[in-house]
């Protein structure tokens, strides 16, 4: 049985209606059905974090979410996060700190790092490392990524004063 399910959901603030194969995971839905190729399939079994996106405001592994289950949900991908400028400072810090090399992990890494900015504004370097420990990067030594997140946190704290 390869059933199709009709879903309507908000993706990056735009309403989207599609009939999806029941077996399609969120990342294939985003990439193949919506052309949102910023989210990457790195392992497709929930370990590498390259597919990190937001569902209903919280980060998830896109490869471990059934698109069919998302009727009525709100999904934010790296494209939407970029367009909203919510983490423009973080993305600038990634560039300034050279916190990406091949970039395949970067969208997922930015999504996970954005979660730190929202939920853990006072995170230490160790806590940043811990929070990002579900996102695999083969190229950097992680240090530049931690630098970028740490600097963004510090700047935001400074701005709030």
């Amino acid at each position: 049985m390869s059933a199709r399910i009709d879903i309507t959901l908000m993706v990056n603030g735009e309403r989207v209606s599609r009939s999806v194969e029941a077996r399609r995971h969120l990342i294939d839905f985003l990439r193949l059905d919506l052309g949102l190729t910023g989210s990457h399939a790195g392992c497709e079994h929930g370990v590498c974090g390259a597919c990190t996106v937001r569902v209903d405001g919280e980060i998830v592994r896109g490869c471990l979410v059934l698109a069919a289950s998302l009727d009525g949900a709100e999904v934010t991908t790296i494209e939407g996060l970029t367009d909203s400028a919510e983490v423009a400072d973080l993305q600038d810090a990634f560039v300034a700190c050279n916190a990406a090399q091949c970039g395949f992990c970067s969208p997922g890494m930015v999504m996970a790092a954005a979660d730190i900015l929202r939920h853990h504004p006072t995170a230490t370097r160790e806590e940043i490392r811990e929070h990002l420990s579900g996102n695999y990067c083969r190229c950097t030594g992680y240090q530049a990524i931690v630098d970028a997140v740490e600097q963004t946190l510090a700047t935001r704290r400074e701005d709030r004063r």
């Binding site: 990439r31 949102l36 190729t37 790296i78 990634f94 560039v95 970067s106």
Partner: peptide
């Protein structure tokens, strides 16, 4: 800084699967 980093951190790169 690498000029091609903004596209990477914004999800605008073009890998073969894209």
């Amino acid at each position: 800084p690498r000029p091609n980093l903004p596209k990477l951190v914004q999800g605008r790169a073009t890998y073969t699967d894209d």
